[in-house]
């Protein structure tokens, strides 16, 4: 690795560089249509980024171009997942990894809040009943130091 650092040239693609392999620009147009749909008809869109024939470096340029916004979330279920809003509000990235850290899905959601972040109604029901059960337990007061 040290030897690597001594290579005089370092490739840093500027974010504004033209999207030379042509697949990124149409994608950005597609995203802008999706944003309009979201704004006017409240219709969310999901794009599977694994199905986009990116050229080398395209994905990174796209990510750099869209940047990172205010919100990011971390999910631990069957491996790690990251969810973040891009610098353009309403455009979200969801990256799922498996237990070995390998990426198993990479999606873009044009929405107000990605579905995977919301709590499932069944979970709310279960949550309520287990909390009630806990409250009925006489030793609770003692446990929380009341």
């Amino acid at each position: 690795m040290n030897a690597l650092k001594s290579i005089p040239v370092l490739v840093e693609a500027p974010a504004t560089r033209d999207f030379c392999y042509q697949n990124t620009l149409p994608l950005l147009h597609e995203i802008s249509h999706a944003l309009r749909r979201l704004q006017q008809e409240q219709l969310p869109t999901t794009i599977d980024l694994n199905a986009i024939p990116f050229g080398p470096g395209d994905e990174q340029r796209l990510l750099e171009f869209l940047g990172r916004g205010e919100v990011s979330a971390h999910l631990e279920a069957l491996g790690n997942s990251s969810v973040w809003e891009s610098g353009y509000p309403g455009i979200w990235f969801i990256e799922h990894r498996n237990e070995s850290g390998e990426r198993v899905a990479f999606q873009m959601e044009i929405t107000t809040l990605p579905a995977i972040l919301a709590t499932h109604p069944d979970d709310i029901a279960e949550s309520l009943s287990s909390l009630q059960k806990a409250l009925e337990n006489p030793s609770l007061g003692h446990r929380i130091g009341d």
């Binding site: 069957l78 799922h96 498996n98 579905a115 499932h120 979970d123």
Partner: peptide, 16 residues
């Protein structure tokens, strides 16, 4: 595996 985990699993399956 939680419901979120299951949803993630299905997302990965669709992609696959």
């Amino acid at each position: 595996v939680t419901r979120r985990g299951f949803l993630k699993f299905c997302t990965a399956t669709a992609s696959m």
